[in-house]
Amino acid sequence: MNIQEALLEYCLRLGDNSLIIGHRMSEWCGHGPILEQDIALINIALDHIGQARNWLTLAGEIEGKGRTEDDFAYKRDAHQFRNLLITEQPNGNWGDTLMRGFLFDTFNFYLHQILQHSKHEGIAAIAEKSLKEINYHVKYSSEWVIRLGDGTEVSHQKMQDALDNLWMFTGEMFEADEVDQLLLEESIGADLQQIKEAWNDHVREVIDEATLKIPESNWFQKGGKQGRHTEYLGYILAEMQFLPRAYPDAVW
C-alpha cells in the first residue's frame, strides 16, 4: 500500500463515519421528543452530512479519477464503505441515539483535534473546520447522557441498556491497521493509542456523573474500517441510494 492509497482509505473512513451517522440522525427528523431537540438533532445531522461532503470530495481529489462526493455516497456497495460499525447502529430510542452519539463524538473530537495539525493540508483544513461543530456534538451528547442517566429510574435503565448494547462497538475505534500505521509514520494520521486514553478519561468521567456503569466485557466487534459491516448498513444504503440506482442517467 502506498501513501496515496492509504490517504484515500483514510478520507473514506472519515467521510463514511460522518455520512452514516448523519444519515441515522436524519431519520429522527420530525419524530423527536420535543421540538427544540428535533431542531438540535437536525443541526447535528446537517453538520455530519456537510463534513461527509468535504471528506468525500477530498477522497475524489486524492484518487484523481474524477469521482465526486455523490459517486462515493451513492455508487458504492456496503463492502466498500469504511465507516465504524457504531455509526450504522439503529437509532433505537432517544437514549440509544444519544449514547451512540456520545461514544462516537468523543472519539471523533479527539481524532479531529489531532488531525487539525496533520501534515496533509487538505486533511488539516477539513479537521480544523469540523472541530468547532464536533466540539458542540460532544457537549450536547455528553449533557444528555448525564441528564438521562441521572434523571428518573426509567431513564437510568434505558441509558444503561444503551451503553451495554453499544459497548462492543467501541473497541474498533482504536484498532490501528496498515492505513493508520502508515499515515501515523508520515505525521498525516492520528495516533489511536493517544486518542484511546483521552477517550477513556472523558467517557469514564461522563458515565460516572451519569451514575451509569461501564460494561466489563473486553471483547469488541470490528471490521467496519475494512468494509465488513453489520446487517444494518445494507438497509441504510438500499434506502439512501435508491434514486441514483433506479435512474442512473438522471441528474437531480
Binding site: 423527536g32 421528543p33 420535543i34 431537540q37 430510542n93 432517544w94 437514549g95 448525564i146 441528564r147 438521562l148 441521572d150 434523571g151 428518573t152 426509567v154 431513564s155 434505558k158
Partner: peptide, 12 residues
C-alpha cells in the same frame, strides 16, 4: 415515546 425523555430532563 418522548415522554420519558421530557420527564427525565425535568427530574434531572
Amino acid at each position: 415515546e418522548g415522554a420519558w425523555v421530557r420527564e427525565a430532563a425535568i427530574a434531572y
